[in-house]
Design a protein around this nucleic acid. Structure first.
Lengths: 183, 183
DNA sequence: TTATTCATGTAATGGGTTACATGATTAG
DNA sequence: CTAATCATGTAACCCATTACATGAATAA
């Protein structure tokens, strides 16, 4: 069954799009906003990439235009074939576990390349950023839990982001302690 | 001071290379192995990318050939200018916090796109992978701690990888519980 | 009516991946 | 002597980013 291209490439962006459309039908413009607002720490993709991908997916029958709106707006929805491809990819295709994260890279290099003083300064700045992100997400989750159950898919997804932020915060904290132990 | 190109692009790979060279001088071949073996969850980069980058960095005086070996081998080392550029980037340049991780993407989509049964199966497979990685790293850290202090830079870097693996494991566990609560 | 947001795109450029090429050195 | 590993690269292709273009709808 299927595959998205002749050559067996991975093409995660196409699957990311199928995945977002499995949550709800959306236009290219809305997808771009989802990538920017809810997925920037997961899968980064912008506007000019998306339209060609949507055309390809439509051409191969994985998605279809489910509604036309004002300003030339086309809302796309998954077809059964698209849903099948998404399931196939999630269940049967071995994940590519490589990553490319500037945040992790900087954390990794921090203590090799910087003096204790510089490292502590950068560490504190980073910790603040992650703390703000963590707090924002935590209170959003707390509010949402009044309306949706914790086993709701959105809650499960937020939980992942929260745990990754916590991991970074824990590391910042522990690293501060280790660097201070050097002095 | 400086910057790596005329146009103010980010060019993290060049900084990743400067960072690895700040740990120890290395050849292109050795750098490729470091990226593959110690950084695959941080910054992915391969062989054919590295040689042009090394030439560019050498041309701009950020690194220099510090030793020639057998088989045409050139070992590169940071110059003071390279060390300065690396510090500048780590301390003064605002990080790009976007990521592109297929692992996170799959986790994010898992419960939206799959049945409880499929989701639990995938979740268990993932948990096993992360558990193996976590255990391997944890015992490596335990061994190493007999020889190096916990404030050693290598230990600090390993600690980050360990915490990220723990975050994934915690999420797998919690998500399993949440999905079972649905049934 | 003017500015903003919505909405879809194209073109040029740059970065990343795959496949391939070449040959030296070392281990068995 | 043969296979594996070390070591450096090139070429073609694909993917991603930036800048730009266009125009419709809505809010002030």
């Amino acid at each position: 069954m299927s595959g998205l291209a002749k050559t067996e490439v991975d093409l995660s962006l196409q699957h990311a799009v199928l995945g977002l459309l499995s949550v709800a039908p959306a236009s290219g413009y809305e997808l771009a906003k989802h990538f920017e607002q809810t997925l920037p720490r997961v899968w980064h993709a912008q506007n000019p990439q998306l339209y060609p991908v949507l055309s390809k997916l439509a051409a191969s029958g994985k998605i279809e235009v489910s509604a036309q709106g004002p300003r030339n707006r086309s809302t796309y929805a998954l077809t059964p074939a698209g849903r099948g491809e998404l399931r196939h990819w999630l269940v049967e295709v071995e994940p590519d576990r490589t990553m490319r994260s500037e945040v992790y890279l900087r954390a990794f290099l921090l203590t090799f390349a910087l003096s204790a003083k510089d490292a502590l300064e950068v560490l504190d700045r980073e910790a603040k950023v992650w703390q703000r992100e963590r707090d924002g997400l935590a209170s959003f989750i707390a509010e949402s839990e009044q309306f949706v159950a914790p086993h709701d898919s959105h809650m499960i997804a937020y939980d992942l982001t929260l745990r990754l932020a916590d991991a970074m915060l824990g590391w910042c904290d522990e690293t501060r302690r280790r660097i201070e132990a050097r002095l």
